[in-house]
Simulated scan of single mutants.
Amino acid sequence: ATAGQWVEAWFKGKISYRQASLMITVAIFMILFPMSVVLTFLGLGKKWVPNDGAWKGAVWVAFIMSLFDALNLAVITGLVNIDISGLMNIINQIPLAKQGFAWLIPTILGYVIGAVVYKFKKKESVAYEVWDN
């Protein structure tokens, strides 16, 4: 509610409180949705997740990609006035980007890279630690 009021004041009444609240809610959802999907799938298949690096790599990449989507929404709605057309042209080259899943392929790559990097650092996985009492 406060953010909606702030956006309404920032745009000097050109955007209503209701529109501002909706824009902010949609942007937050766009950021949280990919991470939620990734965490759900990793949780369902946790016995096949090799280490913590896979979790971290996938979630971080999903978060970063979702920030690009939210930034694009902010530009489209006029909340932010910057030119990101070059960045969005690159992102739209990713398979499934035009269907709203630009985060999917990079997230899979983040999973793989995170798992490999974590393995070579030779860290023990916290997710599978067994506590002996």
Score class of each variant (00 low, 15 high):
1 A>N: 04
2 T>M: 14
2 T>H: 07
4 G>Q: 05
5 Q>H: 13
10 W>V: 08
13 G>T: 05
20 A>R: 01
22 L>Y: 14
22 L>A: 15
24 I>C: 10
26 V>Q: 08
28 I>H: 07
29 F>S: 12
30 M>Q: 15
35 M>K: 05
40 T>D: 03
44 L>F: 12
48 W>H: 08
49 V>N: 04
53 G>L: 05
63 F>K: 01
64 I>K: 05
64 I>A: 12
65 M>A: 03
66 S>N: 05
67 L>P: 03
68 F>I: 08
68 F>P: 01
70 A>K: 06
70 A>Y: 01
71 L>R: 12
71 L>W: 10
77 T>K: 13
79 L>F: 11
80 V>P: 04
83 D>V: 07
83 D>I: 05
84 I>Y: 01
84 I>F: 00
89 N>A: 14
90 I>R: 06
91 I>H: 00
92 N>Y: 11
95 P>L: 06
95 P>S: 07
98 K>W: 04
101 F>I: 00
102 A>L: 01
103 W>N: 00
104 L>A: 15
105 I>L: 14
107 T>V: 04
108 I>F: 11
108 I>R: 02
109 L>H: 01
111 Y>I: 02
112 V>G: 09
112 V>W: 13
117 V>M: 10
126 V>K: 14
126 V>S: 08
126 V>H: 09
127 A>E: 13
128 Y>S: 15
132 D>W: 11
132 D>R: 13
133 N>F: 11
133 N>W: 13
